[in-house]
Design a protein around this nucleic acid. Structure first.
Lengths: 213, 213, 213, 213
DNA sequence: GATGAATGAGCTTTCATTCAT
DNA sequence: TATGAATGAAAGCTCATTCAT
């Protein structure tokens, strides 16, 4: 699996060139529109900006949701690829991990509206998540091998952390841009092997729905 | 400012009793409905469950958004009050802070859909946030005085952390309930005075919007 | 069960007067529009002619199909009632049966477009059919008792005949109006007890799809 | 006019062979699809089943309606031919007539598009109807000559009967397959010379549009 | 004041037909 | 000439909000 495949999926061979161009135009326009107006926009607006008719749009994406999902997945995959590429180029395992988070979140900070849209769709697709897992796992393994990561920290923990900090990015982007970096630093310090206490076992004190009135 | 004022706002005088009852019924029903179905529900559903007509609902809340905001604020305030009350009853300052987060997030875990709705409305209202700040600040000050908190950690950091972990609660509620506690533990460890490195200055490397294609 | 109930369903008590008026307006307009343009018309056209908004229309009839069904059912029930009333007033059992068909089909001849719409909806509703069955069955029984009906003829046969002749009404309405009466006469003669040969058993020689090329 | 001309129109000279093959494929697929789904199907479905593209389909048939008409005409003509051939091979005139109906109806059992066409235009196409008239007329004449047909029965009556029974075939195809044969038998009995009463004159009691509210 | 029926712009989606490749 | 992508005008339906009763 090459990274390029994710960034720019190979055009299916039997495809006409203009169809491919339209598909790209739709995705691009949708990305822009979703970013500006959120996932609630009228599909017409996307069609208008793409320069294609409604029918064309629906030929490529049978549902608005599917379009949204595709766009978000592509964006996220691109960010992921960028962040990962820089991470593998970093020698120090800890710096690689930290830089990965730093860059991924930094990119998201510049694309708030896109990240916000993830809420409506239940987040990136399963395949997208899997890929993210895989990338994080590699970085984690390097840290474990180097003995710099707190024992017991799982890939799931790190993945969850990235999602959690995404929220911080979103929250602070307008009023306190960059403040999320402080949180990232705090979390990373908590992840360093300097902290040896075992983490809570998942499932302990599992959450139970409760009324609040 | 007493806590009671937040939990149950003083009934405006001169108001008919049944109007007050209706208002309460609406808020309660809306809370339940928003919790179940998210912020996208049909207003009719709320009216139905409240037992009031649409007109009455709109007399009390001129907009759906305003209703949503009111409900969310009330809920959040209630959670806040609960968590704070337990925290002040805890002697050890660090345990007080940790317990505050633990309980606040634990409550949110049981009310996922409510928390989700915050996304649509831009979070709790300003007054709500201010109160949260105030409460956290008290807990933080105690920790600072006891010398257990990492130097340089601000109330804003802690507030941001709570919002960030809220996201983790949401994400994991279904598949990995309770995993957020591991993240909380990691963050708290990163917040302990054992970590002395200075945090990044806010504004450094501030975020800049960027296209990703 | 009184016949009046079918012709004009008792207005539900708690209903506002104007709602009832609107509902009636919708049904009337829909009847006219369906008759003119067939079942494929835009719902907006019905709303426009009713003088109500789309929302009102959909409040009363949650689906276009349901509106169509309601309208058709009302019409058919009215026709049925008329035809049956005249039939029971006829002393001679055979004349009653014949007159029933005659009048039912005659009415349909004057409302072709309505009848045509039955095709799109799969015919009148189940309750409507049941009622038709019941009415036909009474007339059939009288004929059987009087010994004027061919032995073995079932209510289903007669019901099917009426649908079949409906088609003839439709076919000839424009070019040869009234010709269906000849077919009716022929069928009735075939139904008289003068014909004693047993009818084919249903299921014998059941249809098998066959290609024709 | 030979029968072969109807069954397989002479290929226009100068036409490429694959064009002819495509045309045939389209007609065959369209026949099946229209029969199954009625005239309302998506043209794409026909193109898909034909194995040709939309452009090809529209090159051969400039309009969906024209395609429908062509298909119906061909099918109907084929059935007609079959039924007639068997009828002429039957010695007994009455059996010939009865067998003609039996086979015609049995073959087109449940073809929705055909039945629809009866309702709207009285049959597939004018030329088709004419041919059908001619065939029926021959059978009728034989019966008249043999004195087995009720006096006064016209070719139009018989044609109308076939369309009428088509409806019965469609109606019962799913729930009571084969029941139409009972109706056919009844009708045929009504057509036998045993019934001497004159049939109503066409135009007597001609239909007049009337409102029913 | 309370009620819930009415409103109508706006949403997603379909499909007969055209046209670039 | 064959292909199937593109078109875009409807169509069915929803829902925040208003207003007559």
């Amino acid at each position: 699996m090459t990274l390029a495949e994710h960034a720019t999926p190979a055009p299916r061979p039997g495809r006409r060139a203009d169809a491919e161009r339209n598909r790209a135009a739709i995705i691009e326009a949708a990305g822009a529109v979703f970013a500006e107006c959120g996932g609630g926009v009228d599909v017409r607006e996307i069609a208008r900006r793409s320069g294609v008719g409604m029918g064309t749009l629906y030929r490529h994406f049978p549902t608005k949701d599917e379009l949204l999902a595709t766009v978000l997945e592509r964006q996220f995959n691109a960010w992921l690829t960028d962040a990962y590429q820089r991470a593998v180029a970093t020698e120090d395992p800890w710096q690689a991990l930290a830089g990965f988070f730093e860059q991924l979140l930094g990119t998201q900070a510049g694309n708030r509206a896109v990240v916000e849209s993830y809420a409506s769709t239940g987040g990136p697709s399963a395949s997208c998540i899997q890929r993210c897992y895989a990338l994080i796992d590699q970085l984690r393994t390097r840290c474990v091998d180097a003995g710099v990561l707190r024992p017991g920290v799982t890939t799931e923990d790190l993945f969850l952390l990235s999602g959690s900090l995404s929220q911080a990015v979103l929250t602070t982007a307008e009023s306190h841009p960059g403040q999320w970096r402080r949180l990232l630093r705090i979390s990373l310090d908590g992840l360093s092997s300097r902290n040896a206490e075992p983490l809570p076992v998942r499932g302990m004190g599992a959450d139970t729905p409760a009324s609040t009135d």
